[in-house]
Amino acid sequence: MGYKKPIPVEINKIVIGEKYYTCSYSGTISVIILKIFKDTNSVLVKINSKKKESNPFVRHMNYIFDNPEMAKSANRDWEHDERKRKKEQKKKQKEKV
């Protein structure tokens, strides 16, 4: 059995207030969609947890899944994109100073 590319949920099929899955450094997490930003192709999400309250954060549509197994297999790509994004942020901050 080979690698199966994870397929994110289409932006048209996302329902606000429903539970979806995304990647994190600690693995797959369950999130609730709060708002959709169609111009930037991203969504505002909040972690779906009754134990601990969390702040909402923005996640790109490429990493929103309706299946936890798909989110698990996309974790490596997500981590790569996060490292790249943070590196570019540091570079921009140094250029400003």
Rank of each mutant, 00 (worst) to 15 (best):
V15S: 05
D39F: 05
V58L: 01
R59C: 11
Y25G: 15
S49T: 07
V31Q: 01
V9G: 02
E10R: 13
E18R: 01
K35F: 15
I11L: 14
I33H: 07
G2S: 11
D66S: 09
T40Q: 15
S24L: 01
K50A: 14
S24H: 06
V31H: 10
Q89A: 13
K13T: 10
I7E: 13
T22P: 09
E10S: 14
V43H: 12
K86D: 15
K72L: 11
N12A: 11
E53T: 12
I36M: 08
N48H: 15
E10Y: 13
K92A: 15
K94R: 05
C23T: 14
A74V: 00
N67V: 03
I47N: 09
K96L: 03
K84A: 15
K96I: 08
L34E: 13
K4T: 04
F37I: 00
Y21F: 10
Y63R: 00
K52Y: 06
T40V: 07
N55I: 08
I7W: 11
K52H: 03
K5F: 12
K19A: 13
Y21T: 02
N12Q: 14
E95H: 09
R85W: 07
V9I: 01
P68L: 02
V45G: 02
F37M: 01
E79P: 03
Q89D: 14
V97W: 09
T28I: 06
K96V: 04
N75R: 09
K92F: 11
S26K: 03
E79V: 13
Q89M: 04
V97Q: 09
D77V: 02
E82R: 00
F65R: 01
Q89I: 10
K52L: 05
V45W: 01
I14F: 06
K5H: 09
V58N: 04
I16H: 07
R85F: 12
K72C: 09
R83W: 11
A74W: 00
T28G: 05
F65P: 02
P68Q: 02
F57D: 01
I36Y: 13
S42W: 01
E18L: 02
D39V: 00
Y3K: 00
K5W: 07
E10F: 08
F65A: 02
N12F: 11
K87Q: 12
I29D: 10
G17H: 05
Q93L: 05
G2D: 12
V9K: 03
I64N: 07
L34I: 04
N75P: 08
S26E: 06
N62P: 06
E82G: 10
S24D: 14
C23Y: 12
R76G: 12
I64H: 05
K91N: 12
